[in-house]
Measured scan of single mutants.
Amino acid sequence: LETFPLDVLVNTAAEDLPRGVDPSRKENYLSDEDFKAVFGMTRSAFANLPLWKQQNLKKEKGLF
């Protein structure tokens, strides 16, 4: 999966995202380093959170 810089994904409308980016899964296009910096946890820890908590975190970080 291709990764993009944080500033390309945060608070970006679906139509302005790079081609192929799923707007409902912007976090998947962050590098592992950016993911950890944004969410303060690994991808696996994030995946283990309840869906509502994942969505709330994504909203807080501008990735929803």
Rank of each mutant, 00 (worst) to 15 (best):
Q55L: 15
F4I: 08
K26N: 02
F35P: 00
F35T: 00
E27K: 01
R43Y: 07
E2D: 11
Q55W: 10
A47P: 00
F35W: 03
V21W: 05
R43K: 11
K59H: 09
P18V: 03
V21E: 03
L51P: 09
T42P: 08
K53Y: 12
K53C: 13
E27H: 03
R43A: 04
T12W: 10
M41F: 05
Y29T: 02
S44R: 13
D7F: 09
G20F: 08
F4V: 06
K26E: 03
L6H: 04
L17A: 04
A14Y: 10
Q55E: 14
E27R: 01
E33S: 12
R43F: 07
L6K: 05
F39R: 00
D34E: 08
G40K: 10
K58N: 01
N48G: 13
F64E: 14
K53F: 13
N56H: 13
V38Q: 03
L57C: 05
N11E: 07
G20P: 06
R19K: 15
Q54R: 13
L49E: 05
F46G: 00
D34C: 06
L1W: 15
K59Y: 09
N56Q: 14
L17H: 04
E15F: 03
E2F: 11
T3L: 08
V10P: 02
K36W: 15
V38P: 00
K58R: 07
T42V: 08
A14V: 12
L57Y: 05
A14G: 09
D34G: 04
K58V: 04
Q55C: 14
R19T: 15
L63E: 02
D7Q: 11
F39G: 00
S44M: 13
P50M: 02
L63M: 08
Q55H: 11
F35S: 00
Y29S: 07
W52Q: 11
L9Q: 02
L17K: 02
E33R: 09
F46M: 01
G62F: 07
F39E: 00
D16E: 12
F64I: 12
Y29N: 05
K36S: 14
P18H: 03
D7E: 14
P23C: 07
E27I: 04
R19Y: 13
L1F: 15
E60D: 11
G20D: 07
R43L: 05
K61P: 00
Q54M: 04
T42Q: 07
P23R: 06
F64S: 15
K53I: 13
L6I: 13
N11K: 10
V10T: 09
Q54G: 00
K59R: 12
V10D: 02
K53A: 12
E2W: 08
R43S: 03
G40C: 11
P23W: 02
K61D: 00
K26P: 05
L6F: 11
L1Q: 13
V21F: 07
T42G: 10
V21M: 07
G20K: 05
F4L: 08
Q54T: 01
A37K: 13
A37M: 13
F64W: 14
L17W: 06
P5I: 03
S44E: 14
V8Q: 11
N11V: 07
G62N: 06
A47D: 09
L9H: 02
F46K: 00
F46N: 00
Y29W: 12
L17F: 07
K61C: 08
E15C: 13
A13V: 10
S24P: 03
L51Y: 13
S44L: 13
T3C: 09
L57P: 00
S44G: 12
L57E: 03
L30E: 01
L30G: 01
S44Y: 14
L30N: 01
K26R: 14
A13T: 10
L9F: 06
L1K: 12
L63C: 06
L30H: 01
A14L: 12
P50I: 01
E15T: 08
P5A: 06
P50S: 08
E33D: 13
V38N: 02
E15M: 07
D16A: 10
W52P: 07
R25T: 07
P23D: 06
P18S: 04
D16W: 07
K61G: 05
D22Y: 03
D34N: 05
G20H: 10
L9I: 05
A45V: 12
E2N: 10
K53Q: 14
S24T: 15
D34F: 02
F64A: 15
K36E: 14
D34Q: 07
P23K: 07
S24C: 15
Q54Y: 01
A47G: 11
K36C: 14
L17T: 05
S31M: 04
A45L: 09
G40P: 00
T3F: 15
L6C: 06
